[in-house]
Write a protein that binds this DNA or RNA. Structure first.
Lengths: 198, 198
DNA sequence: GCGGGAAGTGATAGTAACTCACACATGAGA
DNA sequence: TCTCATGTGTGAGTTACTATCACTTCCCGC
């Protein structure tokens, strides 16, 4: 695990990622070529693609998905699916510190404001949806997700994404957890599972 | 309106689109180059890009959005936002004939199964969300969409998209309206509280 | 009906993301 | 130390997409 080879590889990967993010924030995503990134990181353009299949992939969207799925499975089966996901997200967010949240804000802003990255993210949401749908099924002791589970998962991801957008729009002035709570609350109000107002 | 110039332009646009769709279905999206399409349509690659900014744009996603928005505005203000959108979609679908629906199925299948097109579509959903959010606001006599409207619109689009996925998965065996109704119903009733499938 | 101007088109040349084939070097294991 | 797998660079190529310029064809005011 700690061979020189693997450490070098990890360092190279990190270097590419760090320089890429710095350049993207500095001069914009489209104004930064892969060649620029490679040169800044001290590798050849080839090597860039050995580490990341596409230019978009160099911006990693922190993957809390598996954690979130487990938290969803742990929620009581009687709870409304959207409420379960909302609670799971709240629990996941509680583990994030101020610094981490600030980093997430910067990166989320970059992704949401760059069409190419936004499209990439949308595509990735499909995986999150599937994972969540499976988690909702397992929460009820089912093996496979039903159509209802898929719809609920899709709606939950949509609520989460909208919360992130609102959070970025507000420049992170409110705590992300508050915005997420508001978003899921709004959905649940409409469905009659929560008292209106808030 | 009926100048020779404009008619030719429309014909060229149509020719490019038709040949593109045919080639995509025939040999796949990635296996078809813009040069192939241009040659089949009898124009230069340059001209292709004069008509469509990107290769992805040549696959048009029928734009029912404005119609849908108006139908949403017409729903009673007391109705739940999701129910309002669901009813509006049902009304919009009622105007489609068998043939049109079959075309939508073919095109939707192509889009959902081609990563590049799927990503493009996801990006376009942002516009639909904004339009729907505005419609939900206007339905209540408001001028601007609140956060709640945005979340509801996002959830509605997610439900609609999931319905389309399920519809394609089932190869269009059920009527799209039935699948859409099931999807919105699942969201309104709550997961696991309604028999899935039909 | 005609002549000036605009609009559509093509050829050429270029940028940038990504791929492939091959050769080299260096760290890992015997 | 020797071997070999693995990471890396070089170079050449494909494809989406852009910019410039020149040519043709249609439209419209005279």
């Amino acid at each position: 695990m700690t061979g020189l080879r693997e450490r070098k590889k990890a360092a190279t990967r990190r270097a590419i990622q760090d320089h890429a993010l710095r350049l993207f924030l500095d001069r914009g995503y489209d104004r930064t070529t892969v060649a620029d990134i490679a040169e800044a990181a001290g590798v050849s353009p080839m090597t860039f693609f050995r580490y990341f299949p596409t230019k978009e992939d160099v911006v990693e969207y922190d993957e809390y998905d598996p954690v979130l799925a487990e938290l969803v499975v742990a929620r009581p089966a009687e709870e409304h699916a959207l409420a379960a996901v909302g609670a799971a997200v709240a629990a996941a967010l509680a583990t994030l510190g101020e610094g981490e949240l600030a980093t997430v804000l910067v990166r989320t802003r970059l992704v949401l404001r760059t069409p190419a990255l936004r499209a990439r993210r949308s595509a990735g949401e499909g995986a999150t949806r599937d994972l969540l749908a499976g988690a909702l099924a397992r929460r009820e002791g089912r093996e496979d997700a039903t159509h209802a589970h898929r719809v609920a998962a899709a709606a939950a991801v949509a609520a989460l994404t909208t919360a992130l957008e609102i959070w970025v729009d507000e420049d992170g002035r409110r705590h992300l957890a508050a915005v997420v709570d508001e978003a899921f609350g709004a959905l649940l109000d409409g469905v009659g599972h929560r008292a209106p107002g808030g």
